[in-house]
Design a protein around this nucleic acid. Structure first.
Length: 580
RNA sequence: GCACCCGUAGCUCAGGGGAUAGAGCAGCGGAUUUCUAAUCCGUUGGUCGCAGGUUCGAAUCCUGCCGGGUGCGCCA
């Protein structure tokens, strides 16, 4: 043994390898901006595994015959470690076929690594992810689902990539609604109900006061007085508010636990209330903000999109706004947490707000990257966003229990022999997993109409489908272990086997795509393909009853598939199951 | 009025310069003495909103139009 630390060579995946080979060939001749992506999976498997259209793009750029260029590249590249000599097809595609043996050896390397051959990033950054952010004193409803689930998944993905992730729940705990709630509670507050279900109760109080204020204007005034007292440090109101916040947090924590969602910090808007004057003061002093029509605004004259859209940070009556609080939170996160990057996971309707926030941060000289990870609204049957006011939005906890109820019903039919306790555990994982996956698997920018059947579907591209594949693999692996069988390296030749191996090698690029665009649905699409490929393998290739050298190799394949599928489910925030 | 998002199979959605546009659900027909059938195999179904343009190549990029949605200084 040498005295040096064990040197690890990063594992290489086929697309990366061919990409390097090609750029080594192309760069000296065509210069730096090479077409992207240089190498991509073949659209049609009949053409091969990977393809490059570099000759087409570069040929056009430099006025060369693309086909001749492709032939030239193919000859220069020839056979490689990973691939047979490339074929030239159509107008100038380069098609690559991977050598199965090379895929198998890479696969063996991948399975042996707990991280499945995926390196941690060489440039770890501190990434703050701001998500969920419900209002205190209001029930969580379906509208909060997307932010909560997307944020949690992104947090897991960035952590896995090797970044320092800080998740934060920026609670709406300091708004004008507290005037109403304080008044309501003082008039007819019921301790027991506040303890029992604070969110539901406080929301009810709010609505009652709101309704009676319509008929009796003095009530609105009374509420304003309560708010004023709260904001000016009245001990009684402050203490009551404190209780509202604390009891609400307890109830929220129950929901987050059920969802398997974790926050490093729960820091509501109230945490920044003392800093708001200084934010306005500092921005004024730096001439970033200026008074306008009695209020204080930041203007962006040099930004073509924002030049006519001022960012209002103080109202003419002296009160502060959402923008002010967000700026204070931003300053805190950059100053105290050393955030390099902040992801805000919210509704698409707030895009202007976050563009303005980012533009202000830039004027302020903050070296932080701000990404608004926005998503579309959940609509009602009438195609209008589900509103809290009129109509009744579906409460999140109702959605969660309905998800489990539906899973239980199926389970009672399929696995009557299981003990109740286990059935309810499985129903929970399946139901909530389905709910999460329904949101995660779709392009987040799209609006969608809320439908129980859609969110709680258990067939096709759904969490139960992935879980089913995972459970099947685990059953095989458990039985193998019980019989003392272990995975071995041996050649595999069935089409279903080869397809599965090649697909397993695409986990890493799939994750990269998720990171590039903050779109977990790319991972879902990949995992669905993987589960499908496994099911096909499962139908056509018996594992435990296969003859010895083959059996070991298939077991290895099962191990790799289980590890990858399992890792993918973890990254989505969906609980794995041994049985279902 | 201006800006942004969306429009793909009956329904829900992938694909966002690349080859003959894919899945699921629904429909139709099959597969179970076999490792979990919440599965698999086969099949029906398309003017990618419309019209131009750019390109060797457009569902994808540009322009215009139609339809739906959202935002645009004192809410969050």
């Amino acid at each position: 043994m040498s005295g040096r630390a064990h040197e690890r060579f990063p594992m290489q995946f086929p697309a990366e390898f061919l990409r390097e080979q090609l750029s080594r060939l192309l760069e000296p001749r065509f210069g730096r901006p090479l077409p992207e992506p240089l190498v991509e999976p073949c659209g049609d498997p009949r053409f091969g595994d990977l393809q490059s259209s570099a000759a087409l793009v570069l040929g056009r750029r430099d006025g060369l015959d693309p086909r001749a260029l492709a032939l030239e590249l193919a000859a220069a590249l020839g056979e490689t470690d990973w691939s047979a000599p490339p074929e030239v097809a159509g107008p100038g595609f380069l098609n690559f076929r991977l050598k199965p043996e090379r895929c198998f050896s890479a696969f063996a390397e991948m399975v042996a690594d707990p991280r499945l051959g995926i390196e941690k990033t060489e440039e770890p950054r501190t990434v703050v992810i701001d998500f969920s952010s419900p209002n205190i004193a209001k029930e969580m409803h379906v509208g909060h689902l997307r932010s909560t689930i997307l944020g949690e998944s992104l947090a897991r993905i960035y952590r896995f990539a090797g970044h320092r992730v800080i998740t934060v729940n920026h609670l709406g705990d300091w708004g004008t609604q507290f005037g109403m709630v304080l008044l309501g509670f003082k008039r007819r507050g019921e301790e027991a109900r506040l303890e029992e279900r604070p969110l539901e109760y406080l929301e009810e109080l709010y609505q009652q006061i709101q309704a009676s204020a319509k008929e009796d204007p003095t009530i609105r005034e009374a509420a304003k007085t309560e708010l004023w007292k709260l904001q000016h440090g009245d001990p009684e109101n402050l203490a009551l508010w404190q209780r509202f916040v604390e009891t609400s947090k307890v109830e929220l924590a129950r929901i987050y636990e059920e969802l398997g969602v974790h926050f490093d910090f729960t820091m509501g808007e109230s945490a920044y209330r003392d800093q708001l004057p200084s934010i306005v003061h500092d921005l004024l002093a730096a001439s970033i903000a200026r008074p306008s029509q009695g209020a204080v605004c930041v203007f962006f004259p040099d930004d073509p999109e924002l030049h006519d859209k001022p960012f209002l940070i103080q109202k003419s009556d002296g009160a502060y706004l959402y923008a002010t609080t967000d700026l204070a939170a931003l300053r805190f996160r950059v100053g105290e947490w050393k955030a390099d990057r902040i992801l805000y996971v919210t509704d698409g309707r707030q895009r202007l707000h976050f563009r303005q926030l980012a533009a202000t941060a830039k004027l302020w000289g903050m070296a932080v990257e701000i990404d608004h990870v926005w998503f579309g609204s959940i609509l009602g049957e009438d195609k209008k966003p589900l509103k809290t006011r009129e109509g009744k939005p579906i409460k999140l906890r109702e959605l969660l229990s309905e998800a489990q109820r539906r899973a239980s019903a199926i389970l009672a039919e399929k696995r009557p022999e299981l003990p109740e306790e286990q059935k309810s555990r499985i129903a929970r994982a399946v139901g909530i997993g389905a709910l999460k996956y329904a949101d995660l698997s779709q392009n987040r920018n799209l609006d969608y109409v809320f439908r129980w059947e859609k969110l709680l579907s258990f067939e096709g591209n759904t969490a139960p489908y992935l879980l089913n594949a995972y459970v099947r693999i685990r059953a095989i692996l458990r039985k193998a272990e019980a019989s003392g069988l272990s995975p071995t390296a041996a050649p595999l030749g069935e089409p279903a086997e080869v397809r599965l191996v090649k697909l397993l090698l695409e986990f890493s690029p799939a994750l990269r795509r998720v990171e590039n665009e903050n779109r977990p649905h790319f991972l879902c699409t990949y995992l669905y393909e993987l589960a499908r490929s496994f099911h096909q393998f499962y139908e056509s290739c018996p594992v435990l009853t296969a003859p010895p050298p083959l059996r070991g190799a298939r077991l290895a394949l099962c191990r790799g598939a289980a590890a990858t599928l399992g890792a993918g489910l973890d990254l989505l925030g969906i609980e794995r199951l041994e049985e279902m």
